[in-house]
Amino acid sequence: MSEEVHDTHHGNYVKIWAILVVLLAVSVVGPMFEIRVVTLVTAFGVAIVKAYLVIKHFMHINHTPRFIPYLVVTCLVFMLLFFAAVAPDVMNDTGSGWEKPAWVAEEKAWAAGGGSAGDQHPQP
């Protein structure tokens, strides 16, 4: 097959771009209401929609062989599995047969007490 082979289907890209810009405006304005649910939806929900539009319309994922989305999703899933496994260590202070070293609590206390720009971390 030569390099002249192109199987993409071009659409109205300016329209997609306009939708993306409107979504950007929503993601900026939404959090100004300072309502947690609205912030989550407008910031992160909208980010997912924007990503979908870019992947579908700009990257033409629908017009690639099916193994390409599988390849991408496999990488994503394995990464999420890895982080699901280490998440308890990061997010909990104690677990079954282990606890975090003292310096972690010291750092938390330092940060909660107003550790600010220019200050250095407490050393482990």
Binding site: E107, A111, G115, S116, A117, G118, D119, Q120, H121
Partner: peptide, 8 residues
């Protein structure tokens, strides 16, 4: 003062 070592 917000540098890479300021905080995590």
């Amino acid at each position: 003062g917000y540098t890479i070592t300021s905080s995590t």
